[in-house]
Design a protein around this nucleic acid. Structure first.
Lengths: 220, 220, 220, 220
DNA sequence: CATGAATGAGGTTTCATTCAT
DNA sequence: GATGAATGAAACCTCATTCAT
């Protein structure tokens, strides 16, 4: 986005070409992410993406083939990023209650910092996950969190802290839901309920509420 | 939404031939609801809406002016419908625990039966609620549920059943979130987790999980 | 334009109907004159004319058949009006020099007061006078001015005041041209010459210049 | 305006196949000039312009953005052309009387050879000079004639030939008016006065009349 | 590798006009 | 006489994509 390729690269030695190709690809994906996130798959414009990237439109086709393939590449990058962040969480290293807090907090803050992830997912769902179904890469990226959560719930139960019988997938979906819906729907919710849901204070209250909700459920 | 046009008119010579403004308007809104829900605001085609309604394209402009105004009319109708359904809930007439169950169940089933509501809202959020902000009608339609839930929480607390300090708006948003996210994101979730989330059994499990989650939180 | 027909006229006795018909016709022509003058034949909108007249669009077709015929009727009315005004001039009753002054002044002020006449004529010329060629009425309306001017020039010549050999039609066209062009082109002229040509002072200067120009020519 | 594209290109396979931006731009302006001149801004059709130019309709938008911007470009070209022709006049090199004759004659013949200039200006005036006001280019193109005429009038006055106190702008407008109105309104004038104003003889008479009129005024 | 020029299909919207009551 | 509802054609404009260099 911010790094248009300098003029002289056209004459650069072959050794640098590969690096520039990667940089160009990344610039396109960055620009496309912004455009797709802001306007959806249908609303995004190839011209606008090229302009955002400071690149010729033809290059998008050279690197990605067409708009849908570019969208898929954007999704793949977005999933890489979140999976990468998820791997930083070390839920098995801390006590169960703290681990639940950390998971809720992580989910919330990841969505807050990556609002494009929300709209990209909404777009993909509108298209019934057609691009995900087409991406072996994404399907191979298992989230480590389900297993972590499973172990965590078992640890908590064994320690007599947590209730039993909790499906980790259901709980994970619920934790995601609580943050995702609030942030994704904040525009309509703010209008419908006439309350500012985007102030720092409102956001702090939301995180607190979600944490209590989840803990209230898992704690015996 | 639910077939205001009697069946027998559907068999009339060439779609809607009768000169009936109210019926024509409704037919356009019904067709537009389907199209917008399936493809989003940007992806929807005026031609397709006209074809769905069996009407001349020109009429959409005669009645609504342009695509965005039609989208707004569709949203207004969708909110009318859900508010109307919400008014049927009589949370104050039953015991608090049962009332919470009913609220979770209602929310879930309403979304299940009206999947278009989910995608319309996602579209509107993508556009940052521009049409809601433009609609005095929707802004005047207060949901009765926040107040009902507030009273319900207080009744439960007074009876020594529920915890105190629960913000009814936060809880309402959470209840909506748990259903909305699951249903709205089921396509991507199914692919990502490799699990069928749409089977009747899966849906029953989801409802059960959500109910326990919410009750686990509110009950002392 | 300013007289929408009162509600009760629909029930009025037959005797009044004819008068109402005439009034309705006139209202349509007034409205159409304004619209055609402002936007040209191509730019005028039937809907807008109906709205200006406060009448149902269908009535325009009832009374005039189609847009072009309405335009023709507007032109006919415009020519009736100017011919009628021209007949008020009594150039033969005053002395030749004064008569020239009066003719120049009349032409100028008529155009100033009836700017719609200028744009209607421009529209008609763009269409190569198709409607005038179609109107027996307009072709039958001879301007009295050519003959008046002819006699006037002869009177002046006989009195030793005016030069001979002046073609009254050429002179009449010139007198019209001097006012018409200035007023019709004032928007572009003002921009191109960076001078306000529409102020009262500028208009007075124009009239003075034109009068001197014409008199300078005809006087020996 | 006058065929910048060499003849032989016109015979190329499918109109303009060569990828030549300047030539394409010019071809569009030429075609648009004809269409706008014949039908006005409102009556002109983008499709027709593209067909006249033998180009894909999309290109008009590629180069000019929209219809109004294209119209502005056409106006700009038209003013460039007339200013360029005006600069060829050397009014300061000949004697004052001859110079007046030349100015009247030039104005007349320019309009005769460039009838599109008349209708374009009428269109622009109908739109109240909106495009001229938007064109810094046109506003920067001062006509050299006002100054030339000013000097010329002074030369004539100093030589005791011309009257004093003549406003060169008023006189210039009058000279333009005499030709412009006659040519612009010849269709309606011919019908109204039942006289052929377009024959070579009629045109010669007009030029003669105008010259005498102007000289009759300026000469002492 | 990179780019400005070009395109066909199709999108939203407008328009004069007619229908049915 | 009068009117709201309805229509087919066509207008302007946009878009993803490809061509030629």
């Amino acid at each position: 986005m911010s790094d248009p390729i300098p003029e002289d690269t056209a004459d650069a030695p072959a050794g640098l070409t590969a690096r520039n190709a990667a940089r160009t690809r990344q610039a396109i994906i960055d620009a496309a992410t912004g455009e797709f996130a802001a306007l959806g798959l249908g609303g995004a414009r190839i011209d606008a993406i090229a302009a955002r990237a400071g690149l010729n439109k033809r290059l998008l086709y050279y690197y990605f083939g067409n708009k849908e393939a570019l969208f898929q590449a954007v999704l793949e990058r977005a999933y890489q990023n979140i999976r990468s962040a998820e791997r930083e969480l070390r839920l098995d290293e801390i006590d169960p209650v703290e681990a639940i807090r950390r998971l809720v907090s992580f989910t919330w803050h990841y969505y807050v910092k990556h609002p494009e992830f929300l709209t990209l997912l909404n777009s993909e769902n509108l298209h019934q996950a057609a691009h995900l179904k087409n991406s072996a890469q994404i399907q191979a990226m298992n989230s480590p969190l389900i297993q972590s959560l499973d172990q965590l719930l078992e640890r908590g139960r064994a320690a007599g802290l947590f209730r039993g019988g909790v499906d980790p997938l259901q709980l994970y979906i619920s934790i995601a839901a609580l943050s995702f819906f609030y942030l994704s729907n904040r525009h309509t919710l703010s209008v419908v309920f006439g309350r500012d849901l985007q102030s720092p204070k409102a956001e702090a209250q939301r995180l607190s509420h979600m944490t209590e909700l989840v803990l209230g459920y898992v704690l015996r």
